[in-house]
Design a protein around this nucleic acid. Sequence first.
DNA 1: CAGTGTGAAGTTGTTCACAGCA
DNA 2: TGCTGTGAACAACTTCACACTG
Lengths: 214, 214
Amino acid sequence: MKVRSNNTAHNVPLPTLRRLPGYLSFFKALKINGVEHVSSSRIAATFKMDPTLITKDLSYTGVKGRTKVGYNVDQLIQTIVNFLDFNTRVNAYLFGVGNLGRALINYEGLNDYGLDIIAGFDVDPGVINATIKGVKIYPLDAFRDLSLQTPARIAIVTTPPVSAQEVADLAVAWGIRAIWNFTPQSIKVPKNIILENTSIYSDLAVILNRLNNE
Amino acid sequence: MKVRSNNTAHNVPLPTLRRLPGYLSFFKALKINGVEHVSSSRIAATFKMDPTLITKDLSYTGVKGRTKVGYNVDQLIQTIVNFLDFNTRVNAYLFGVGNLGRALINYEGLNDYGLDIIAGFDVDPGVINATIKGVKIYPLDAFRDLSLQTPARIAIVTTPPVSAQEVADLAVAWGIRAIWNFTPQSIKVPKNIILENTSIYSDLAVILNRLNNE
DNA sequence: CAGTGTGAAGTTGTTCACAGCA
DNA sequence: TGCTGTGAACAACTTCACACTG
C-alpha cells in the first residue's frame, strides 16, 4: 500500500513548493518598490497563471489575505521565507570546483536563501588550497577529517559526470543527508538520503521542443 | 476555451519531455561501457521509477523495443537525440557575463546538445571585448547590429535580477524567439515568445523542505 | 517466462463555481 | 463589487492489469 510520501511538509504539492521561491522573489521586488499589498490576480498576471492557483499555493503557507486589499507584502515574504526554511542556515560541501562549481560558490543567491557552502573539494592541484569567496578548496581525501570537524548536511555535486557516483558514495559514507546533483549523470543513493537533480538539459529540451514546434 | 497547448510535439507530456535528457545521458554512459541492450526494468531501477512509466516515456519517441532483449542502446540514443532536436544547431546569445554566464559559456554540455552560444553581452568594461572559449563579449548596445548580422533564436539571461526584464525586452525587440531566464526574477514577454525559467531556488526549496521534515 | 505495449483505473494537481466578507 | 477561500469538477499524469510476442 502506498501512502503519499510525507517528505513534504503538511502535504504541500511538490509543484507548489517549487513555485513558492518564484513568488518570493517577486514579493521582494515589490517591497523594494514600496508596494505594500498585492492581490492574487496581480500575482497571477505576473506569472501568467490562474489566480485561484495562486490562492491555493499561498494558502499552504498559512498566510492570510484581506478581501479587497490583497495580501500584505511583508507578511508574504516573512511567511514564505519561514515556510521554506530559507532563514535556517544549512551547511553544504561542494565537490568539483570547475566552472559551474565556482559559479555556485560565487553566487550570493544561495547564501541569501540559507545555504552556506563551507568548503570545496577537488582533485586538481591547480585549485586545491585556493580560496574562492572565502571558501577554501581541499583535496578530496581531506573530506573525511573535515566532515568530522565541521559537518555539513548537503553535498553539492558539480564534478564531471563520470566522477559523480564516486563522490556521492563518499559523501554518503561520511554522513551527508542530501545530495544536490548538478551533473546529467544519474546517481544512486540509499533511500534515506535525499537526492535532488538539477538538470539544465531538461529545460533545454523544453525550449528546443517549443522552438521546433512553433 | 483552453486547448492543451500544442507547443509540445505530438502531445508529449511535459514531465516526459523533461525526463528524456536524463535517460539519454544514461544510455550514452551504457554505450561507452559497451552495453548494447537495456530493458525498461533496468532503466527504472537506475532512476528509481516505475518500469511502465519508462516504457510509456520511450513510446512517445517512437523507439521500438524487443521483448526478452529490451531496447537497442544505439537506437535509443539516436531516436531520443532526434526527438529532442539535440542534433539541430541553434544559436544563442548570452546576456550577463558574470560567474554563471561564464560557467554556461564554458560548459561543453550545452554545445553537445545543439546549443551554440555565439556571443555574449555585458555592460562591464572589464569583460567587454574579452573572448571566453571562443565566444566574444560585446557591449549591450552592439546587440542590435549583431542580431541583424548573425541572428540567434535564444537569449540566455544571466544578468543580475534587476536587469533581467530590460534585457528581455531588448532581446524580444530584436527578434529573439525564446528566452531562457536563469535569474530568480519573473520576466514578462509577449505570448508568442517562449520563456523558460531555470530556478535553482526551486530545487533548493525542495531539498530544505525534505531535510527539515526527515 | 521476461520483456514490451496499451487501455483502464487511480492519483495528483489545476480550474471552476460559488460562498463569505469588507 | 472585488477579492479571498474552499469544496467539487475536471484534466493531467502515473500506476495497474493484462494481452502479446519471441
